[in-house]
C-alpha cells in the first residue's frame, strides 16, 4: 500500500511500528561524575541512538522515496531535535529527571560536572514539564517526531536541493499527511473544536523550543569536541559538522 493512500490511523500505526527499541548504555557511569566521563556516556548513547534513528527514518512511509540528498539533509538538520524529543518522552513520567536511557537517569544537579550543560538540562526539563502538563499521548509524540524529521530547515537548502522539485513536493505531501495524522490523534480525545485547535498549537509551539535547545546542544557538543574533552564517533562527528 502506498503511503499516499493510508488513512491517518494507518499512517500512525506505521510510524508506531518504526519506533526504535529501548536503548541502554550498558556500562556504569562511575561516580563521582567527571566532565569527561559524563560527556563520554552521553555521546556514546547519542551514537547508538543515531544508528536506530536512521533505521527509523527509513521506515517513515515515503521517506526513502525522497532523493538521498534530501534524506541526508533532513537527518543532518534534525537529529538532535529528534534525540531530545525522545529524551523528553522517556522522562515524561519522571519529574526532575532526564532519562537518557534505562540505565542512565540524571537530575539537573548531576549536570553540574559538565561546564555549560545545566542550562541545557533545565531547558530539557522545562519542555518535558510542558509535555507532562499537556498529557502528551504516544500517538501525538510519534507524529511530532516524524514532523521534526520532515520539517527540518527547508529554507537553508542548497541550490541542488531547491531544484529537486520532485523531492520538495514529496516532502511537503508527507508533512501534510503527518499533520493530518496529528490532527486526527487530537480529534479522538473528545475535546471541543476550540480546544483541539489550541492543543495542536501548543504541541507545535513546543517544537520551536526543542529547536532552540538543540541549537544550544550542538554548540555545546562542538565546543566539548574542539576542546578535546570528548571524542566523538565518525557518525556523530559527521552529523555535528554537517548539521550546524
Amino acid at each position: 500500500v502506498h503511503h499516499s493512500s493510508l488513512t491517518p490511523e494507518q499512517l500512525i500505526s506505521c510510524i508506531m511500528h518504526a519506533e526504535p527499541p529501548e536503548i541502554y548504555l550498558m556500562e556504569d557511569l562511575k561516580r563521582p561524575f567527571t566532565e569527561a566521563r559524563m560527556m563520554m556516556s552521553l555521546t556514546k548513547l547519542a551514537n547508538k541512538e543515531l544508528f536506530f534513528m536512521i533505521s527509523w527514518a527509513k521506515k517513515i512511509p515515503g521517506f526513502v522515496e525522497l532523493s538521498l540528498t534530501y534524506q541526508m539533509h533532513q537527518l543532518e538538520s534534525c537529529w538532535l531535535d529528534v534525540l531530545m524529543l525522545g529524551l523528553m518522552w522517556r522522562s515524561i513520567d519522571h519529574p526532575g529527571k532526564l532519562i537518557f536511557s534505562a540505565d542512565l537517569k540524571l537530575n539537573r544537579e548531576e549536570g553540574n560536572c559538565v561546564k555549560g550543560i545545566v542550562i541545557i538540562f533545565d531547558k530539557l526539563l522545562a519542555a518535558t514539564t510542558r509535555f507532562r502538563e499537556l498529557n502528551l499521548q504516544r500517538e501525538e509524540y510519534v507524529c511530532l517526531k516524524a514532523m521534526i524529521l520532515l520539517n527540518s530547515n527547508i529554507c537553508s537548502t542548497s541550490p541542488e536541493m531547491a531544484e529537486d522539485l520532485e523531492s520538495r513536493g514529496k516532502l511537503q505531501l508527507l508533512l501534510d499527511s503527518v499533520t493530518d495524522a496529528l490532527v486526527w490523534a487530537i480529534s479522538k480525545q473528545g475535546l471541543s473544536f476550540q480546544l483541539q485547535s489550541a492543543r495542536l498549537a501548543h504541541l507545535l509551539m513546543l517544537l520551536s523550543d526543542i529547536r532552540h535547545v538543540s541549537g544550544k546542544g550542538m554548540k555545546h557538543l562542538s565546543d566539548m569536541k574542539n576542546n578535546n574533552i570528548v571524542q566523538v564517533s565518525d557518525l556523530l562527528l559527521e552529523m555535528l559538522t554537517n548539521g550546524s
Binding site: K58, D234, M239, N242
Partner: peptide, 13 residues
C-alpha cells in the same frame, strides 16, 4: 557524508 550515506543506502534489517 560517508557514514550517513552508507547507512541510508544499506538495506534495512
Amino acid at each position: 557524508h560517508t557514514k550517513l550515506l552508507q547507512l541510508l543506502t544499506t538495506k534495512s534489517e
